[in-house]
Amino acid sequence: MTDLARALQEPWPDLRMQREGVSLGMWFFLASEVLFFAALFCSYAIYRSYNPEAFRIAGAHTKVIYGSINTVLLLTSSLTMTVALRAATAQLRRVTLICLGITVALGLAFLITKGLEYHDDIEEHLVPGTGFPLSPPATQIFWGLYWIMTGIHAIHLSAGVVVVIAVMIIFGRRIIPVQGSTMEGVAIYWHFVDSVWIFLYPLIYLAGRA
């Protein structure tokens, strides 16, 4: 039980409450994050409702292949993250570490794909400003939002990757046992980043397909 005692932190009286507290705290934080993205989605919705044609034209220039690959990668990473959490709860340390490793790999693959996509976009000068190839002008709003939305999502995912790697090191060196409250928070955050992508994908990549 000394192993468990190390997982317990001030000011919590026991580990069960600590896990509950961390998970609750994380959900409060996610409520905050939800509104962070909501402001962005709201801007998108308003501009799209005012400029449907421009958004259709602009949306047709997004790279649906990259977007779809990334959707698959992220959804799969959510699967492995869930299994990692379940394994941690069942005190299966090795399985936890393996699943976290796969999750990180999938996250990194996402970021690499994203990088390739950004490269292609820049090649095509799809950055708002002078020399923007599309018209009408409102297409620039779509592409401005594209860079901001995907950029912020990528930053969130990068943060997730860094945190998961840190957690793997902590677990690997047995600084904190896997069944502590750490995994609760990490898993919920990771799924949140995934669920933002679930909405970004149709709004960005499927906007101008039909």
Binding site: S23, L24, V34, L35, A39, C42, A45
Partner: peptide, 16 residues
């Protein structure tokens, strides 16, 4: 926890 998750959605609704 479910209420907190719902709260986020409720506030989005308000905003939209």
């Amino acid at each position: 926890v479910r209420i907190v998750a719902m709260a986020g959605l409720f506030w989005i609704m308000m905003m939209f």
